[in-house]
Each structure stands twice: as C-alpha cells, then as structure tokens.
Computed example of a mutant assay.
Amino acid sequence: MTDTSSPSHAHPVRSGIATGTNFAAAALLFIVGIISLLQGISAVANDDLFVVGVNYVYEFDVTTWGWIHIALGVVGLAIAIGMMMAATWARIAAILIAALSIIANFLWLPHYPLWSILIIALDVIVIWAVATWDAED
C-alpha cells in the first residue's frame, strides 16, 4: 500500500495552488519593492514633491526617508527574486521585510498617506500569502 501523505505523492491541484500562492506572493513583493524604490527615488530627487505635514515624534528629513524606502525596495526585490526561485530563506525574509515595510510606511503616513496605505495593504497581503502557503504541498 502506498503512503499518500508524503510530499512525493502530493495532490497535483494542491501543489499547483501552493506554487501559485508562492508566485503571487513573490509578484506582490516585487511590486511593493518597485513602488518603494520609486517612492524613495522621488523623495531623494526632489523634496518638494511630497507634502510634509505637521511635525511629529518620528521626524526624519524627507531625504532620509527616501533612502530608507530605497533600501527596503532593493531588499524586497532581491527577496522576491529568491521567492520566485523557491528559496526557503526567502519565505522568512519576505515576512520580515514586509513587516519592516509596514512599520516604515506607517511612520511615513504624514508625508504621503496614499502611497503608504497602498504599500501597507500590499505588505499585509504578502505576509498572509507567505504565512499560509504550505511548503509540504
């Protein structure tokens, strides 16, 4: 009698869904990385592009925030490429970088709320997709 619970005998539909979920999470992380990279480049290139609101506790110069977003974007792109290659390290790193991106964009809210809300929403979806993907399938 064969054991159908082993990964080598996984159901093809489940395997397809798992692969699709991993690829979708990688694609979303790639998009978040591009958006963060463009947002950071815009902040570094031209400080007048962003609407700067009232001062708040976590105040940085807009150029500093730009470099933070550039770094998050580049790391996010690298992790997304790792996820597309099905690297195990990329799953853990994707959750970590998405969480850091959520924190950075929450602190960036007073400067540019629409971009921040968009990126936070995409990061939450990335965390959900990576955390619910079952590597055994």
Results as ranks from 00 to 15, higher is better:
Leu38Glu: 04
Ile120Val: 13
Thr19Ala: 12
Gly82His: 04
Thr19Trp: 11
Ile79Asp: 04
Ile125Val: 15
Ile31Val: 15
Gly73Leu: 08
Ala98Ser: 12
Ile31Met: 08
Val62Trp: 06
Asn46Arg: 08
Ala94Gln: 04
Thr19His: 12
Ile79His: 05
Ala27Tyr: 05
Thr63Asn: 09
Pro110Gln: 09
Leu38Lys: 08
Thr88Asn: 08
Met85Asp: 11
Ile68Leu: 15
Val44Tyr: 10
Ala121Ser: 10
Val51Tyr: 13
Gly66Val: 07
Phe60His: 05
Leu107Val: 08
Tyr112Ile: 09
Phe30Glu: 01
Gly73Asp: 01
His111Cys: 14
Gly40Ser: 01
Ala129Tyr: 03
Val74Phe: 02
Thr64Trp: 10
Gly66Ile: 10
Asn46Ser: 15
Ala129Arg: 01
Ile95Tyr: 11
Pro113Leu: 09
Asp48Gly: 12
Leu118Phe: 06
Val62Tyr: 06
Val32Leu: 04
Leu107Thr: 03
Gly16Phe: 06
Met84His: 07
Ala90Cys: 08
Leu72Gln: 03
Ile79Val: 15
Ile119Met: 01
Glu136Val: 06
Asp123Glu: 13
Phe50Ile: 14
Thr132Pro: 04
Val57Tyr: 08
Ala98Lys: 02
Pro7Asn: 10
Gln39Ile: 13
Leu77Arg: 02
Gln39Val: 08
Pro7Lys: 14
Ile31Arg: 02
Leu72Ala: 11
Ile102Leu: 04
Ala43Asn: 01
Ile125Trp: 04
Val13Ala: 11
Asn22Lys: 12
Tyr56Met: 11
Leu77Asn: 04
Ala78Val: 12
Ala25Pro: 02
Met84Lys: 14
Gly33Pro: 01
Ile79Cys: 02
Asp3Ile: 03
Phe30Arg: 01
